[in-house]
Amino acid sequence: MLAVQLLINGILLGGTYVLIAQSLNLIFGVMRVVNLAHGSFIVMAGLFTFWLSARTGLSPLIVLPIVFVVSFVVGALLQPVLIEPLMNQGRRAELLSLMVTFGLDYVLVQIALHVWGADYVSLPYLQSTWTFGAITLSKALVVVGLFAVGIVALLYFGLNYTSFGKALLAASQSPVGAACCGINVRRVRLFAFALGIALASSAGTLLIMILPMAAESADNLTILAFVIVALGGLGEYAGVTIAAFLLGLAQSLAGYFLGGDAANVLPFVILIAVMLLWPQGLRRAA
């Protein structure tokens, strides 16, 4: 029973990791932009959800679509101003995008600090459990995990089975080839960035139910997402999903058998090991 509980804990943790990482991966996959402001979008959405729910009593699951739409619009407004001009900078684009998103991260964190303060907050939502024999399931964790996996599943089907999704994948694989086939690559990039921001923000709304979060959590979330994406392979959607679940499971086991310190350091140990053995990521190594 212990093994089952550890497995469930790991899968639920992995479910949240999938959502945190896929949004970063989507933006990188299509634009080759490592969005260093990723964590700050997660945190801003989390703090906004806390603020709105605490004031209006709205369930964070009702706030979720609001956050998704608002952040999609924010992403769509930011992309043409900040990211698109870098796309014709050739090889310099990646480095320039790091600098631009680093600046954006700083601005967003300062806004979050100014608007919501520096305190760690968390929402007391769905604080009860389902018990099946010796197995205990936290309702909040299950709901967060299901929503996260559901959103990522929608992303997967959207990318693979819709014409726009296929266009997006095509643009990520070969922007020139996609343009030759009549795909409006510029529009695809705009959509991908906005969607990535909306997914990251959705992760924030869900995470605030299970984790204490503050403006300063942003950088840690960016690093975590980056570790998962690096493990799975940059731009590899299936690889990143596998990496997120594997990391969740590994942390669950390490935390149980080796204690909190081991669980904290594990993602970085795994990252170093994978980079040494399979620098192209887990998916391509498999």
């Binding site: 804990n9 204490p212 942390q251 669950s252 935390g255 149980y256 909190g260 310190d261 904290n264």
Partner: peptide, 20 residues
């Protein structure tokens, strides 16, 4: 007994170990 560091360690595993 265990020690841990911020940010956001996996408290679930520690809680499960303590539960046992």
């Amino acid at each position: 007994k265990t020690t841990y560091s911020l940010p956001e360690p996996d408290f679930a595993s520690m809680a499960l170990a303590i539960k046992n």
